[in-house]
Design a protein around this nucleic acid. Structure first.
Lengths: 256, 256
DNA sequence: CGCACGATTGACGGCTATCAAGGTGTGTGG
DNA sequence: CCACACACCTTGATAGCCGTCAATCGTGCG
C-alpha cells in the first residue's frame, strides 16, 4: 500500500480538512491553506463508532478534543442521585470535549446516537501547533466563545418556559443547524429518542408526547416517528420566543 | 507627577497583577513572572463604577474582556418579550465578556451590583500578546473551559429541580466561591436582590421568599436581609444534590 | 413625612410530574 | 414466517408544586 511521496491518495482527499464540507463550521474556519495543512497532520480520523457506544466516559483522562464528522453525539453527566442529565446534542462540524481542558478529565460522557465518525485532535499537539499558527489558536478561542453563547441559550430555554415553548425552541434550533449543513430546514429526522430530548429539556416522556401532540393539533408541525416536518415556522417561532398571549398589550410595564 | 524610570510607584504595586490577591483565580494563574509583566502592560485598571451602572450593554462592540477586581457584576440578556434574563453573577477574580469573542458584539450586558472595579484587558492586545506568550494563550483557553463547566452546572441546576434544591445549590455555590476568596464559607452577604437571584434560578420573588423561609424553618440556614448564615452545610448539600427522600431504597431501578 | 421599591403573606389555579396501563415498533430466535 | 421480548411511545387520572393575583409590610431616601 505504500505510495511515492507527493502522491495524493483518495483517502487523503476524502479525509482532508481542506476538502471537508464542514470546514466553515469547524476548526479550519478562515484558516490559511498552509495552516490547514498543519492541522491535517495532527488530526486523526477514527473509525466509525456504533449507536450507543461511548466516545469517552465521564472521568476519563483528557487527551483530545473531537469534531463530529458524520452522525451525531450526545453528551451527558451523571447526577449524584444516579440519574443522567443530557447536556447537549452535537451534529457534524461541532467540536466536543472542550469542557475537559480545565481539569484534565472529561466531566461528561459522549455517546453516539447513531453510527458516527469523528476527527480526533490530540490537545497537546493542538496547543503546540497553536504556537506556530496563531490563527488556529484564535479559532479555538472563537469556537469556545460560541459554545458559551450556546450554553447561555440553553440556560434561558430551561428558565421559566413552558413545555410547548421549550419543544418549539429546540425544534427550531435543530432546523437552523440542519439548514446550516445544507439539509432541509422544514423536514428532518431527529437523531435522539423522545426520552433523551425530554431529559435535555427537563421534561418527562409523558409530557413530551402530549406536547408534541398539542403542537400537531395546532397545525405547527407534523411528526411520524423521529421524522419532523415544520409546517408553520412563523407561528412556531412566535410560540417559542414571542411575547406570549398578550402580544398587543404594551400598557403593562412587564416583569422588569 | 513624572517619576524617574525604574522607580516603582505605590499605584503600580497596588495595581500589578503579580501582587494581586486574586492572581490564582484569574488570567495570571501559573504564568511566569516575565509573562505576568507583559500582561500588566496591556491591562487597564478602570475607575470604580457605581451600583446599577453598565460595564457594557448588549449589542455594544466587543473590544475587551474584564476581570472583576472588587465588588460584583451580574450579566443579563434581554428576551424578545422584554423580560430580562440574568445569566450569571461574577465575583472578584472572574473574567467576563468571553461570550462576545465569537460575534464581535456583546450578547449580554454587564451591570455592577455594588460599587465595583474591574481590570480591562483589550482583546486585540491579548491575542497579540498570546502569540509571544503561549502560556497566556493556554490560560485563556483554560478559563473558557472552566466557564463551560460552570454553564453546564447552571443548566443542570435549572433542569427538573425543586425551588428548595435550586436555592440550596446556589447558596452552596456562593459559599464555595467566597471561601476560595478567603472569606467565610458559612456567613456572607449576597450582593444581589432576591428578585435577581430568583430571575437567575427561574423562580418568582414570591417563591424565593417562601423557599428561604422553609429552609430557615428546617434549621438549615438563617437570613437577615442579604446576610446569609449556613447552619447545616451537610444537610443543605444533601438537599441540593442528594438522592432525595428515597435515599436508602436501592430496589427501584430509577429513572434510567 | 411621603414615596418608591423590595419583601412578605395568603388564596387560587394551571401546568407538569407521577402513577398506571396499554399500544407500537423493531430486532431476535425459533 | 411467526412469536416473543424489549424498549419506546402514548393515553388517562390524579396530585402537588409553583406562578399569578392581590394586599400588606418594611426600609431607605429625597
Amino acid at each position: 500500500m505504500s505510495l511515492p511521496r507527493g502522491v495524493t491518495t483518495l483517502k487523503e482527499v476524502r479525509d482532508s480538512c481542506r476538502n471537508c464540507r464542514l470546514r466553515s463550521l469547524c476548526l479550519p474556519e478562515s484558516l490559511s491553506t498552509a495552516d490547514i495543512g498543519k492541522l491535517e497532520e495532527i488530526v486523526h480520523r477514527r473509525k466509525p463508532i456504533a449507536r450507543g457506544d461511548y466516545l469517552f466516559q465521564a472521568g476519563h483522562p483528557f487527551t483530545a478534543i473531537y469534531a463530529v464528522r458524520t452522525g451525531s453525539i450526545k453528551t451527558s453527566t451523571l447526577l449524584s442521585n444516579g440519574d443522567e442529565h443530557i447536556s447537549g446534542f452535537h451534529l457534524p462540524g461541532e467540536v466536543i470535549g472542550l469542557d475537559a481542558i480545565t481539569s484534565d478529565r472529561h466531566p461528561s460522557a459522549a455517546i453516539a446516537m447513531e453510527t458516527t465518525s469523528v476527527c480526533e485532535i490530540p490537545f497537546n499537539s493542538l496547543e503546540a501547533l497553536g504556537e506556530q499558527a496563531p490563527a488556529l489558536q484564535h479559532q479555538l478561542v472563537r469556537i469556545m466563545s460560541r459554545e458559551l453563547v450556546t450554553e447561555q441559550g440553553t440556560a434561558q430555554l430551561l428558565t421559566r418556559r413552558s413545555a410547548e415553548q421549550r419543544l418549539a425552541a429546540i425544534l427550531l434550533n435543530f432546523s437552523d443547524r440542519f439548514a446550516n449543513r445544507g439539509l432541509s430546514a422544514s423536514r428532518f429526522r431527529l437523531p435522539m429518542s423522545r426520552l433523551d430530548l425530554g431529559n435535555y429539556l427537563g421534561l418527562v416522556p409523558e409530557t413530551m408526547s402530549r406536547t408534541f401532540r398539542r403542537l400537531e393539533e395546532q397545525g405547527l408541525l407534523s411528526i411520524a416517528g423521529k421524522e419532523v416536518s415544520i409546517l408553520d415556522k412563523c407561528a412556531l417561532t412566535e410560540l417559542a420566543y414571542g411575547t406570549g398571549p398578550d402580544a398587543s398589550d404594551t400598557t403593562r410595564s412587564g416583569r422588569a
